[in-house]
């Protein structure tokens, strides 16, 4: 098959083995998958299926024990820590279930954080403000996370993920800490970003309502892809 769009993620025969005392745990078992640029993909599976491990490797937070991983044209399977940090900074935006905002910093400072590690000095404020406006928080840029509602905090986190124009938005249970109405709004925002910017969105979830809004669902079981449905 010939891809209509270039693959943004190409993972081949990924394995990940943890050693817990005497026992070896195979979290990933020769898993292969491909995700095209601009896709919205949900990764589902029961706990222990290797979901988190896969997300960590796809998000360049961790390295596979073996296998190949090419992210947006860069081989990422065997990079050093600082090279992985640079890839995360440029190509990946993370959205976590628990937002993970710096509590003492304003929304603006939180969104500026990736730009600071990118070494960007001059246009930081303008870019961060634009990102906050894009998620509908243009009027709250100086609020601290404690002064914002859960949905607003997750919007700040999304703005932070977007600010460096990443190729991939990786959302780990993005609606898990929110009520269903706010959760739906956050999903709307993620899909809107996908539509308008063409950013690939990967959702890790076990909420079927969230997965239903993705164009493709990848189910994992025992460290392997169970079925791929579109």
């Amino acid at each position: 098959m010939t891809p209509a769009t270039p693959w943004v993620i190409q993972a081949t025969h990924l394995t990940k083995t943890y050693r817990m005392g005497e026992v070896e745990v195979h979290a990933l078992n020769g898993l292969s998958l491909q995700i095209a640029s601009g896709e919205v993909v949900a990764i589902m599976g029961p706990s222990g299926s290797g979901k988190s491990t896969l997300m960590n490797i796809l998000g360049c937070l961790d390295r596979p024990s073996s296998g190949e991983y090419i992210l947006d044209g860069e081989a990422a399977a065997r990079l050093r820590d600082d090279q992985l940090a640079s890839i995360r900074n440029r190509k990946i935006g993370f959205v976590f279930q628990s937002f993970n905002l710096l509590p003492r910093a304003s929304a603006l400072a939180n969104v500026e954080l990736p730009l600071r590690y990118a070494g960007l000095n001059g246009k930081r404020k303008a870019k961060a403000t634009a990102a906050l406006e894009a998620v509908g928080l243009g009027d709250r840029i100086h609020h601290k996370p404690t002064e914002l509602s859960g949905g607003q905090q997750q919007r700040v986190a999304i703005a932070r993920a977007l600010v460096n124009d990443p190729a991939i938005l990786m959302a780990d249970e993005p609606t898990g800490a929110l009520d269903s109405r706010t959760g739906k709004e956050i999903m709307d925002l993620l899909l809107e970003i996908n539509r308008e910017r063409g950013t690939t969105v990967i959702l890790v979830t076990h909420d079927p309502n969230v997965a239903a809004r993705a164009r493709r669902t990848i189910r994992l079981r025992d460290g392997q892809v169970e079925e791929a449905a579109s």
Binding site: G59, L61, D81, D82, A85, S86, R88, N89, R90, F94, F96, N100, L102, L113, P114, Y117, A118, R160, N164
Partner: peptide, 12 residues
Amino acid sequence: GLRKAVGARRRD
């Protein structure tokens, strides 16, 4: 962890 996730290197 968060700082590292958004791109902080060891030196940072």
